[in-house]
């Protein structure tokens, strides 16, 4: 397993499967991703990415949207989003 995650197709429509939910919880101090017998704390950026994984938007749309929102270089956003989504998909927390 290398450290560089494999690319995600522009036309992929990432979505959370049933049984994986992103929720905001005041008592736990922010965003959490709820999954089978697991709870992952999500920082604000991760939450912004996962929120966009609705199954509607394509991967390219999501990256473009984040580039606009954060005024950051596209290649950096692309690398960050790819790493996050690949990591989630490997854990069966995301469908690509």
């Amino acid at each position: 397993m290398s450290n560089v995650p494999s690319a995600i197709a522009d036309e992929a429509r990432p979505r959370l499967p049933r049984g994986v939910r992103l929720v905001h919880n005041e008592a736990q101090g922010g965003w959490v991703l709820l999954a089978p017998e697991r709870v992952f704390k999500a920082d604000a950026i991760a939450a912004e990415i996962v929120k966009r994984c609705t199954g509607e938007a394509t991967f390219a749309d999501i990256v473009d949207d984040l580039v606009r929102t954060y005024s950051a270089p596209r290649e950096r956003i692309l690398a960050d989003v790819t790493a996050l989504l690949r990591g989630l998909a490997d854990k069966k927390l995301l469908e690509l």
Binding site: F40, K41, L84
Partner: peptide, 9 residues
Amino acid sequence: MIGGTENRA
């Protein structure tokens, strides 16, 4: 960005 299982403070 997202990490850890049920062992975060």
